[in-house]
Nucleic acid binder design. Structure first.
Length: 231
DNA sequence: ATCCCGAGGG
DNA sequence: CCCTCTGGAT
């Protein structure tokens, strides 16, 4: 059983290695404007950031302000964002979010987590992305990558994002929460994949309790694999 | 086939 | 906890 002290030390080392490995980890939805970042993040659900970035110029030109989104014609907006998938739900979310921001916050995107999460289509992950990357408020963005990695790191098996934030928040300094989230997510995208993690080239191998317990690339190629504690 | 830096509803 | 929503890339 790992002691609390050992756990904290290991977490700090992992964070340091991630920082060295991904020195320029950042939000790939590169908007400093809160409204733009909020809309782009809503669009990014189950869709690559590249594809989101292909529609945002057209979208932001047509809807420059909260009021423009609030008064938007749904079918027109669907046409613009169609290629990002889930376009009906996303259109409803964006218009509903804008109407709520207009009615409850005077057309200004709120800076508080509770206010952001209360907006239609805005969950905890999206809210923390906006807080961290547009408002400079530290936040852990617990997406599917983050969730998977902290489990493999042996930090927590919790699935509830709030509980995960609480556990990780005690291991990582608050002022690094935002960039730490990006490091973890970048690592998940590049090496610590859901099905077949590339443990052979992982810079965290020596510190990872899940090292070697997952399917190898060779086994995967031979189709002899069932991911154990993975997924 | 499987995945993409999710959210809402049952 | 489950399901659904969607198109595009690999």
């Amino acid at each position: 059983m790992e002691t609390r002290l050992a756990l904290v030390r290991r977490a700090r080392r992992m964070n340091r290695i991630l920082a060295e490995t991904y020195p320029d980890a950042h939000c790939e939805l590169d908007f400093t404007n809160p409204l733009e970042l909020l809309v782009a993040t809503i669009l990014s659900a189950q869709c690559t950031d590249k594809r989101v970035n292909m529609v945002t110029p057209t979208l932001f030109a047509k809807y420059p302000t909260v009021e423009d989104y609030a008064a938007a014609d749904p079918s027109e907006m669907e046409g613009i964002i169609k290629s990002t998938g889930f376009f009906r739900a996303k259109t409803n979310s964006i218009i509903g979010m804008a109407q709520a921001v207009s009615a409850k916050h005077g057309g200004v995107v709120p800076r508080r987590l509770t206010d952001l999460v209360a907006l239609p289509g805005v969950g905890r992950k999206t809210a923390n992305v906006v807080l961290g990357n547009a408002f400079g408020v530290p936040g852990l963005t617990v997406d599917t990558h983050f969730q998977r990695l902290v489990r493999r790191f042996g930090w927590t098996d919790e699935t509830d994002p709030v509980k995960i934030e609480r556990v990780v928040g005690e291991l990582i300094p608050k002022r690094e929460w935002t960039v730490f989230s990006h490091r973890v997510i970048w690592h998940g995208r590049r090496i610590c994949h859901a099905r077949t993690p590339a443990c052979g080239v992982c810079p965290l191998a020596a510190l990872c309790p899940s090292y070697g317990t997952g399917p190898t690339e060779a086994a995967k190629a031979a189709k002899l694999v069932r991911p154990g504690p993975f997924s």
